[in-house]
Computed example of a mutant assay.
Amino acid sequence: MSIAASNPTVQAFVSAVNAGDRDSFDAVLAPDATMSDDGTDRDLAAWVDKEIFSADGRMDIESESDGGLELVATFTNSTWGAMRTAWRFTVDDGRITRFETGQA
């Protein structure tokens, strides 16, 4: 059973992923947002296209901490299937400036 993130910006991110809504996803990110996957910085636009929007990505939140800025979620896409992942978000003025993800 998926829970909602208590941080509204992070919840908007998760909702956009789950809806496949690229416009809403882009709107929640700061213009210069960055990200990493398994500890390696990635090109955000290329990663998001490949891992989320071209592969029907979906997040089901299992738990959260740090006021909703840290999540453990089952991330599923058509490339890798389902995997337990950790997510950490940095939010500034209601927009995500960085997110880090990797296997949990």
Results as ranks from 00 to 15, higher is better:
1 M>D: 06
1 M>A: 11
2 S>Q: 08
3 I>W: 07
4 A>E: 14
4 A>Y: 07
5 A>I: 05
5 A>W: 03
6 S>Y: 03
8 P>M: 11
9 T>I: 15
10 V>E: 04
10 V>T: 10
12 A>T: 09
12 A>I: 06
12 A>W: 05
12 A>V: 08
12 A>F: 08
13 F>W: 13
13 F>V: 13
14 V>C: 10
15 S>Q: 15
16 A>K: 03
16 A>V: 04
16 A>W: 11
16 A>T: 10
19 A>F: 12
20 G>D: 15
21 D>P: 12
22 R>I: 07
24 S>R: 15
25 F>D: 05
26 D>H: 10
26 D>I: 15
26 D>R: 11
29 L>H: 15
30 A>L: 08
31 P>W: 04
31 P>T: 11
32 D>R: 12
32 D>M: 12
32 D>A: 14
33 A>E: 02
34 T>H: 04
34 T>S: 13
36 S>K: 08
36 S>T: 06
36 S>G: 14
38 D>G: 14
39 G>A: 05
41 D>Q: 12
42 R>E: 09
42 R>D: 02
43 D>F: 10
44 L>F: 09
45 A>Q: 13
50 K>C: 03
50 K>Q: 14
51 E>Q: 12
52 I>R: 05
53 F>W: 01
53 F>E: 01
53 F>M: 01
53 F>T: 00
54 S>L: 12
55 A>F: 04
55 A>C: 08
57 G>H: 05
58 R>W: 15
58 R>G: 03
58 R>D: 07
59 M>S: 11
60 D>E: 12
60 D>S: 14
61 I>F: 12
61 I>Q: 09
61 I>P: 04
62 E>V: 14
64 E>L: 02
65 S>G: 08
65 S>H: 03
65 S>V: 01
66 D>C: 06
67 G>Q: 06
69 L>C: 07
69 L>S: 07
69 L>H: 04
70 E>H: 11
72 V>R: 06
73 A>E: 13
74 T>A: 03
76 T>E: 07
76 T>A: 02
78 S>D: 15
78 S>P: 13
79 T>R: 13
80 W>A: 14
81 G>H: 06
81 G>R: 03
81 G>I: 11
82 A>K: 09
83 M>S: 10
83 M>F: 07
84 R>M: 04
84 R>C: 05
84 R>H: 09
86 A>S: 12
86 A>I: 04
88 R>F: 03
89 F>W: 01
89 F>N: 02
89 F>V: 01
92 D>Q: 04
93 D>M: 00
94 G>T: 00
94 G>L: 04
95 R>F: 01
96 I>P: 00
97 T>A: 02
98 R>A: 06
101 T>S: 00
101 T>K: 00
104 A>D: 10
